[in-house]
């Protein structure tokens, strides 16, 4: 299968806002923000697209780090940032529409940061 080039640039959290602003100025649209937990760090990927080219920025931050919100640049980013907070517990500072953990109400807090399955932990009473 043909593989498209999908460059991923790893950056420091302090550079995030500048880099994202550069993508916005160049006319890219925000495709998505995703988070993966690798041992004790979060790998956060911001994807941008222009003319079907997918460019990504990547952060590696230890658990407990607060990252800046990009919703001041891409207004719609709040949905991903709130989702990331509710799933993983990533603290994002300065989201324009901050749900404070109420976008997705789940059976346990930050389910994706410590994955368990039904039956492995005691269920709540019926």
């Amino acid at each position: 299968m043909k593989e498209e080039e999908e460059p991923i640039t790893t950056i420091a959290p302090d550079d995030l806002l500048d880099k994202v602003r550069a993508y916005d100025d160049a006319g890219f649209r925000l495709v998505q923000i995703s988070c993966t937990k690798i041992e004790e760090t979060f790998e956060i990927t911001y994807c941008f697209d222009q003319d079907y080219r997918l460019d990504s920025l990547r952060l590696h931050v230890p658990i407990g780090t607060t990252i800046p919100s990009i919703s001041g640049i891409y207004w719609g980013a709040f949905i991903y940032e709130n989702e990331m907070h509710d799933f993983f517990g990533v603290e994002v500072a300065g989201i324009n529409v901050d749900y404070k953990g109420n976008l997705l109400k789940t059976a346990k807090k930050y389910p994706f940061s410590n994955v368990t399955f039904r039956g492995e932990v005691t269920c709540r009473k019926k």
Binding site: V97, Y99, L103, L104, T106, P111, F112, V115, F117
Partner: peptide, 17 residues
């Protein structure tokens, strides 16, 4: 203000299973 979660299942975690 939308709020969601009524049909959230958490199926992405099933990759481990």
């Amino acid at each position: 203000l939308p709020s969601i979660g009524y049909v959230h299942r958490g199926l992405e975690t099933l990759v481990e299973k």
